[in-house]
């Protein structure tokens, strides 16, 4: 077997290995801009975070988080402006209350701590965004694939 064949095989083995699928709900005004900054600054970060842009972290309904888990997400991140920095003045204060409670509820019913995370990342914190992405990906990698709530693991009823 030639060296190039071997490397192709290695690549194939790598691609079939599980990779975390993480959904990030990022506020348009801060975290999304932070992600942009991380990109144009060429900060290295793992490519497993799939970002959904929302107008405000207060726009994130907890049902979105559960829906993401149902559709196969291994982790969910909600990122918004620092308290006091909200573009709409108070949106993230509601986010804070909502997800403080929601995170505890998820852990109460048996979700692993770390499956759901929330962070404040401003538009100027490209480095923090990249570091946080690394941390979330590491956390999810340690936890492994999420099996809870996944719809594709449920046998479909045939009519």
């Amino acid at each position: 077997m030639s060296v190039s064949e071997k490397s192709v095989l290695n690549q194939k083995a790598e691609s079939s290995a599980w990779k975390p699928k993480i959904i990030g709900f990022c506020c348009n005004w801060c975290s999304y801009a932070g992600a942009d900054l991380a990109g144009i600054s060429r900060f290295k970060q793992p490519p497993y975070l799939r970002i959904i842009r929302v107008p405000c972290s207060g726009r994130v309904n907890p049902v979105y988080v559960l829906r993401a888990f149902q559709k196969g997400a291994d982790g969910v991140l909600v990122a918004g402006c620092h308290p006091g920095d909200c573009h709409y003045a108070t949106g993230n204060y509601f986010t804070r209350r909502r997800f403080l409670i929601f995170k505890r509820l998820l852990e109460y019913v048996g979700f692993e701590p770390g499956r759901f995370q929330a962070r404040w990342i401003s538009g100027a914190e490209g480095q923090k965004f990249a570091d946080n992405t690394k941390k979330v990906v590491d956390d999810i990698k340690t936890l492994g694939p999420n099996k809870r709530m996944r719809l594709d693991s449920i046998p479909q009823i045939k009519y």
Binding site: P62, Q70, R150, I154
Partner: peptide
């Protein structure tokens, strides 16, 4: 919320119902 009765949709229902009452 899916209308099917299975453990995943049921969990979505129960957590959402509880959270709406938080």
């Amino acid at each position: 919320v899916g209308k099917e009765i299975n453990v995943s949709e049921n969990e979505l229902f129960h957590l959402t119902r509880a959270f709406h009452l938080a």
